[in-house]
Nucleic acid binder design. Structure first.
Lengths: 221, 221
DNA sequence: CAGCACTTTACGGTTTCCCATAAAAAAAGG
DNA sequence: CCTTTTTTTATGGGAAACCGTAAAGTGCTG
């Protein structure tokens, strides 16, 4: 049963609508944080006072506004919270739609649910909370589709290193030297070329610009 | 005095919070549209019934979801609405933060106010509505700052056409033919090269890959 | 219409990228 | 330890991109 919820969300309006959605689920014991640091603080205090939260609903991106913050965003917050209260359920509520990021939330951050800020988000929020209350993870169908789509090609660290360097403006011919300096092997120019060709071939691309655009869309770089 | 308001917003949660904000301003005669076409329709009907709206609060971007729509977004909606009811006040409520776009809304679309979905957006929404009720335009300070910031390069349609083609994998040398086929001029290869060089120079870039990555980050392509 | 300023296009040389092939190195297997 | 296989690196020719300059085109003005 979920009775005590913390909302971490910098947008006042989004915060309001989550609050209202919770009201409709008859969850009245709610707290609000407009900064990640404050959210972590509230969770820590609640644990100390032995009245810990059951659920954290958090955004991913918090806009800086002059007040110095230690935690830079939702991902940081999740990592920090896990250390304080490992059993806290976490539901991410964000406009994020890049498959790689959402996938990462499930696999690496082990969150309990993800609801994208989109057309029927309020309804989905209710469904998600109900699912999580029954100790199930919430995995909307269209999110699953997004993640599955991503599997057209899985980039290795080596791939992403090369593509990132290209996206930063490094000349292809200068990449081998950079790889050597960082102890990455293989480092030969031919190896770089070969790798890029294999990726582009697998994705049906012809030019590096296309590959960079694709990785940006995926949020891989 | 503003008494009758239409909210055009596809996100259910955002719609809810706007509604709640209006309630707090004791504006109870509100209607909701989750699609631009529906919004235009409601406005047209209201004009016909001689009970027209005083204010339209609209988002800029509406996500397609299968239902075919004529109007593709907030800008289209504003243009269409002006023809039906020129005196309707228009307040844009969007996460848009690109100075060029916001500037365009004021100068070309002649909107009455803009509130960015951000930290204190609900409070700003109230302020904006109060200002507009007194026939003033609402121009928050930080928005002005954004527009004044000139450290952002503003891409022309021509620029974006070229960059988009590159991002789609077209060879630079094949772009002139494509431009000619689409009646875009200039179309010479040298003009394309010159333009790309000017952009890259202005942004301190050296390679096309870098430029594509930057445009993807900006959401310009 | 001539003159001028400016834009667009055309062209040639250089660099970088692309691609195929071969040599060298490393890994695998007996 | 030697052979086989695979991976990595080196090399060279050709295509594309890059860069400067000259020519052609366009628009404005007197």
């Amino acid at each position: 049963m979920i009775t005590k919820v913390l909302i971490a969300e910098d947008h006042e309006s989004a915060n309001i609508s989550v609050q209202k959605t919770l009201e409709e689920l008859v969850i009245i014991n709610t707290a609000y944080a407009y900064y990640c640091d404050d959210a972590l603080n509230k969770i820590t205090q609640a644990v100390k006072a032995e009245s810990s939260f059951d659920l954290l609903i958090t955004d991913l991106y918090f806009e800086p506004d002059g007040y110095k913050q230690i935690l830079s965003g939702g991902m940081d917050l999740i990592t920090a919270v896990r250390k304080v209260q490992p059993d806290l359920k976490i539901l991410v509520f964000s406009a994020e739609n890049r498959p790689a990021t959402i996938d990462q939330l499930y696999s690496n951050y082990d969150i309990d649910g993800f609801v994208r800020k989109a057309r029927h988000d309020a309804r989905e929020l209710k469904e998600a909370i109900n699912e999580i209350a029954q100790h199930r993870r919430y995995f909307p169908r269209h999110i699953k589709q997004l993640i599955d789509k991503k599997n057209v090609y899985s980039f290795s660290d080596f791939d992403l290193t090369i593509i990132t360097l290209l996206a930063q403006g490094m000349l292809q011919k200068d990449i081998p030297a950079h790889l050597q300096n960082h102890g990455i092997k293989p480092s030969g120019l031919s190896s770089v070329e070969k790798r890029l060709n294999q990726i582009k071939d697998a994705l049906g691309f012809t030019k590096n610009e296309q590959l960079v655009a694709h990785c940006k869309d995926l949020g891989a770089i």
